Simulated scan of single mutants.
Amino acid sequence: MNYAQLLFPDFSLILCGFLVCRFTSLNRTVWQQVDALVYFFLFPVLLFQSISKTTLDLRAASSLIGAGWALGLVGIALAYALPFVPLLGRHIDRRQHAASAQVAFRFNSFIGLALADKLAGPEGLLLIAVLIGVCVPLFNMAAVWPMARHAERGFWHELLRNPLVLGTAAGLLANVLGLHLPHWAEPTVNRVGAAALALGLMAAGAGMQLGALSRGKALGLAVLAIRHFIMPLVAWALAQLFGLNALQTTILLAFSALPTASTAYVLAARMGYDGAYVAGLVTLSTLLGMASLSFALGVLRLLPL
């Protein structure tokens, strides 16, 4: 499978945003307003629609769900622990870490859905949709907590007013209650979702300053190593521990090796952190996704269970 071809649309949108911001009159003043539109309206609608219409067969996929949660908790724990690692911790700025920890465990669900469809068709789509539905709330809360804590804003106050978390919670509630949008509204909401993805990636590119990555080389290397090397290894071990079948193992490995979420930049920027640095990490993660997906699906998947 050509992972470069799969990831190219996301990377090209990031590059497009970077070039438009740097070489046209659509400068950062314009893109700051785009950030607000994406964060407060487009992404919450997208999350609500994606989760509310996902078929969550929790009983049939209980082992996969357990492995997915365990994988997420390991990633979160590793990301949170970085400032306390001997030698490494002294080179990590705590505020920068608060904004960047999310890069280590969050994932790009749209690439995940496209990949699962190519790997296993409708059955693969169902399995990764279940993973996305149950993991997004956990990962979003874990992304907000260190930023709220470092900024000394109440965690629950920050969580309850975070539009990404609210969109996720509303989508899960609608899913559990069996509520659906009327058919006449779905085309509009689907277009909002498409706009969220495109503008979110372009905004990440517009906010990117490649030089910003030099401000935290050790931190950037650590979170990307967790995201693209350690997480696939942990997923392979968990697949054996939870007794997953071949298809479930493939989906979990793909899930573990995805590039980080493009919303990581939006969340960091809107909460007052170094958005340019996180945007740089999102871009590098998109590129590294080609290597980690090849490693997870081309090497680890072939190892005997």
Results as ranks from 00 to 15, higher is better:
2 N>P: 15
4 A>F: 14
7 L>Q: 00
9 P>V: 07
10 D>I: 09
15 L>C: 06
18 F>D: 02
18 F>S: 00
24 T>Q: 07
26 L>A: 14
28 R>K: 13
29 T>S: 15
37 L>D: 07
41 F>I: 12
44 P>W: 08
45 V>I: 13
45 V>L: 09
45 V>F: 12
47 L>V: 01
48 F>P: 06
48 F>C: 14
49 Q>M: 11
51 I>E: 01
54 T>N: 07
55 T>Y: 12
62 S>W: 15
62 S>T: 15
63 S>I: 04
65 I>K: 05
65 I>F: 13
68 G>W: 14
69 W>Q: 11
73 L>S: 06
77 A>M: 11
78 L>P: 01
85 V>T: 05
87 L>P: 06
87 L>M: 12
88 L>K: 02
89 G>A: 07
90 R>N: 10
93 D>M: 10
94 R>N: 02
96 Q>E: 11
96 Q>K: 14
97 H>Y: 06
98 A>P: 09
105 F>G: 03
106 R>Y: 04
109 S>V: 12
110 F>V: 01
110 F>K: 00
110 F>M: 02
111 I>G: 00
113 L>H: 06
120 A>P: 06
122 P>W: 05
123 E>R: 14
124 G>A: 08
127 L>G: 03
128 I>E: 01
128 I>T: 10
130 V>T: 09
130 V>C: 10
133 G>S: 11
134 V>L: 02
141 M>W: 09
142 A>I: 04
144 V>D: 00
147 M>Q: 12
149 R>H: 14
150 H>Q: 14
152 E>L: 11
155 F>S: 01
157 H>S: 14
165 V>A: 11
169 A>F: 11
170 A>W: 03
171 G>K: 00
178 G>F: 02
180 H>G: 11
183 H>L: 13
186 E>L: 13
186 E>Q: 15
190 N>S: 15
193 G>H: 03
201 L>S: 04
202 M>W: 07
204 A>L: 10
204 A>V: 02
205 G>I: 07
210 L>F: 13
211 G>F: 09
212 A>G: 05
215 R>C: 05
217 K>G: 12
218 A>V: 12
222 A>Q: 02
225 A>P: 06
227 R>G: 07
233 L>R: 04
236 W>K: 09
238 L>T: 06
238 L>G: 08
250 T>P: 01
251 I>C: 04
254 A>F: 08
259 P>W: 09
265 Y>S: 07
269 A>Y: 06
270 R>W: 01
271 M>V: 05
274 D>Y: 04
274 D>E: 13
274 D>M: 04
280 G>H: 05
282 V>R: 01
282 V>E: 03
288 L>K: 01
293 L>I: 10
297 L>C: 08
297 L>P: 05
299 V>I: 13
304 P>Q: 12
